[in-house]
Nucleic acid binder design. Structure first.
Lengths: 214, 214
DNA sequence: CAAATGTGTTACTAGCGGTAACACGAGTCT
DNA sequence: AGACTCGTGTTACCGCTAGTAACACATTTG
């Protein structure tokens, strides 16, 4: 029952845990989302059962690994969202922050986007704590909170903020994913185009000749 | 070399193929994206190798199954996009069509969106359909085409249209996914909120008290 | 000293995607 | 008729995966 014993051993366990996470990080960076538990264990210089003792199952390792990156990315996004600047500038900075992150480490973010997708049927029965689609949902909720806190949207503000939060995050994600694959333009151009979309240029645009009347 | 023989046998093969696809459809509707080849074969009353003879590998079966639903959904979306009405009405009709579809058969569309399922390493070698979501890409390209055809967006119209196509589709998808999970409001409310976002209400909204200056 | 605890191993299960080898039936060619 | 092809179906297998049991070693704690 000594606290000294517990803290000392726990400290060692935490250090190992961090080392294992870093090894997993390396493997995911190299092999992408298909990284196997065997490969991660080998990279860490150990064998599988240790991974399972530390993280329970693959979902646990995924969750721990995801938390690191989502927390880091969300911190960057919060900084961009909270910068003292015009709204348009803040929106563009936020978009650019996200796109720069996925551009720098595409494999990691592809890994983060795909939820658990377990092999066995254990996932389907009861998912008390792990059903969440982690990164996208968290970003959506976070953005929704910022929108609701800072914008005056009238009586439906709460619902509007949440819908917009998830919608904008989805827009950012899908456009970023497509852009990463095709690279049809520079990052700055993409940012400007998306901000234009959010700024109502879709509604303001004129019809082409032979337009919607037909 | 008779044409009659060939067409006869091919007709039979096509019929079997359709039957197998319908069995696969049933299993996916029941078991979700984790449906295994064994389960599909059992549902069809046969064994695995026949599936592989017809569809090559799991990706082929996925692609064939996906094509059916994507084509059907895209047809509905095109109809909504081409309706003779105001732009705002068309946008809302398109959003509502998509949301009604995913509401009616959530499992199918979850299957279509999350195909990647890291099986063996064989999948990694030749990636016919490895891209995260053919449905999202196709919808994005399709919408981009409609936007470019019908809107006058100035000199950068082509790039803008493609970015917006993928962005709007991503917005629709992410918001729909979140909405399906939480059901925080009615479908009509969601449609209106998203259309409001696209109509520039984000840019037009006023600041809250103690706003961005802090 | 002995008990407990974290670290590590080998060896295994069950299921997956995918494939070879073989067997049967129905039309076709000579 | 007999041989030949071709599509349909099987069983039995491969290599891989996630996950687990059983056992061994070191270290700290009572």
């Amino acid at each position: 029952m000594d606290t000294t014993q517990r803290t000392e051993q726990q400290r060692s366990a935490d250090r190992r845990r961090r080392e294992l996470l870093e090894a997993a990080d390396r493997v995911v960076l190299r092999d992408g989302p298909q990284a196997s538990m065997n490969a991660i264990a080998a990279e860490a210089g150990i064998t599988k059962p240790i991974l399972y003792r530390h993280f329970g199952d693959k979902g646990g390792l995924y969750a721990a690994l995801a938390k690191r990156h989502t927390d880091a990315l969300l911190d960057s996004l919060r900084a961009a969202l909270d910068a003292p600047a015009e709204r348009r500038e803040r929106v563009e900075a936020t978009l650019d922050t996200y796109l720069a992150a996925i551009e720098a480490r595409p494999q990691v973010y592809r890994f983060l986007m795909h939820p658990a997708e377990g092999g066995t049927a254990a996932e389907q029965g009861f998912d008390v704590g792990k059903h969440s689609a982690p990164l996208l949902r968290r970003m959506g909720e976070e953005l929704a909170q910022v929108i609701e806190d800072r914008l005056d949207l009238g009586p439906e503000s709460q619902r509007l903020a949440r819908v917009w939060g998830h919608g904008i995050v989805g827009m950012m994600h899908a456009a970023g994913d497509w852009w990463l694959g095709e690279r049809p333009c520079s990052r700055a151009e993409l940012v400007r185009s998306l901000a234009d979309l959010l700024w109502g240029r879709l509604a303001a645009a004129g019809d082409r000749i032979g337009g919607p009347g037909f």
